[in-house]
């Protein structure tokens, strides 16, 4: 592992066997705005976490546990008050906006679009960080062949090629989510960060999105970090899970390590049933029925 604190500009050399984490977070504290309350109002406290290349990391936890805030820190949409975040061995804060945008793609929680862009236009927006800057482009920056190619490819990957001419205002939730992920893929990032990609989607679309993400990780060596409410999806699709409670990491590890009755009782305050998934053998979480005593 490369020692931190060395020259910021050196970028890891993959050839000599040194191993550099994709992300390396050390003692990260974060809050929005000014300190408040007795405990300082921290949203995230002392988060130390490494993300490995090619991982599919799930961030889970109860409401208000800091999941989305952690994702925003990773996406450089917010900066920690203290602690240190490095990306491929370089300080995240030291990267230019452009470099960040060419490396990290961020898909926010799904929300309705108000302007009638076509799906193809929306996906092409992901090419913005790769735009050609020239004196005469005059802010118009027409997309070139490479841009169109990357967008078409991203659309094919997300299986929305047939929607190209549709307006994003007319799409269903699942189609819109796939469009937004395609937009992120057109960015040709090395990291894909998604906030609740399966929220508000029906079962079929949840499975679709998750299997596509898993495939992207496998085929394109993309590192994927998702925030999810759905412990079962996280268990089946994530290679590793971080569980947050009140802004602290309560558990971290493979789904089998993290998703235990004790941990969940500790974090969520309720007792659930956990058995093995009939196909994958990974933990499967079931809510207790009404006849069972809630507290054991």
């Amino acid at each position: 592992m490369s020692s931190r604190g060395q020259d910021d500009t050196t970028i890891e050399n993959g050839g000599d066997g040194t191993h550099v984490h994709t992300y390396d977070l050390r003692g990260v504290h974060f809050r929005y705005g000014r300190p408040s309350g007795l405990d300082g109002g921290w949203v995230l406290r002392d988060v130390t976490l490494q993300v490995q290349p090619g991982e599919m990391l799930g961030i889970v936890g109860p409401n208000g546990s800091g999941k989305t805030s952690l994702l925003k820190l990773l996406a450089k949409l917010a900066a920690p008050q203290s602690g240190d975040i490095t990306l491929f061995g370089r300080h995240l804060a030291g990267l230019s906006q452009e470099e960040t945008a060419q490396t990290i793609a961020f898909v926010p929680q799904e929300h309705a679009q108000l302007f009638p862009f076509t799906v193809a236009e929306t996906v092409l927006m992901g090419r913005f960080p790769h735009r050609q800057r020239s004196r005469w482009s005059f802010g118009f920056g027409w997309e070139d062949q490479d841009d169109c190619h990357a967008a078409a490819q991203a659309m094919a990957t997300m299986d929305i090629t047939h929607l190209a001419e549709r307006l994003v205002t007319d799409l269903s939730g699942g189609e819109r989510q796939r469009t937004m992920i395609a937009r992120a893929l057109a960015q040709k990032p090395r990291l894909l960060l998604l906030d609740e990609p399966t929220a508000f989607l029906d079962l079929q679309h949840q499975l679709d999105i998750c299997s596509v993400l898993r495939r992207l990780r496998d085929e394109q060596e993309l590192t994927v970090v998702i925030v999810s409410h759905d412990l079962n999806l996280a268990s089946q699709y994530c290679t590793r899970i971080v569980m947050l409670k009140d802004g602290r990491i309560a558990a971290i590890g493979t789904p089998s390590e993290v998703l235990s009755v004790e941990t969940l009782r500790d974090v969520y305050g309720c007792t659930v049933l956990i058995d093995a998934h009939p196909e994958s053998g990974l933990p499967r979480i079931t809510l207790p029925g009404p006849s069972l005593p809630v507290h054991v």
Binding site: I11, E121, H149, A152, P189, E219, E221
Partner: peptide, 28 residues
């Protein structure tokens, strides 16, 4: 940091690209 590595099977230039790019025609 800025060199994405897409798998070759998705990134074949030439005949493949014209077919793939066509969907954008008329939509942008």
């Amino acid at each position: 940091l800025t060199s994405p590595s897409f798998t070759p099977n998705l990134m074949q230039p030439g005949a493949h690209s014209t077919r793939v790019d066509r969907p954008l025609q008329g939509a942008i």
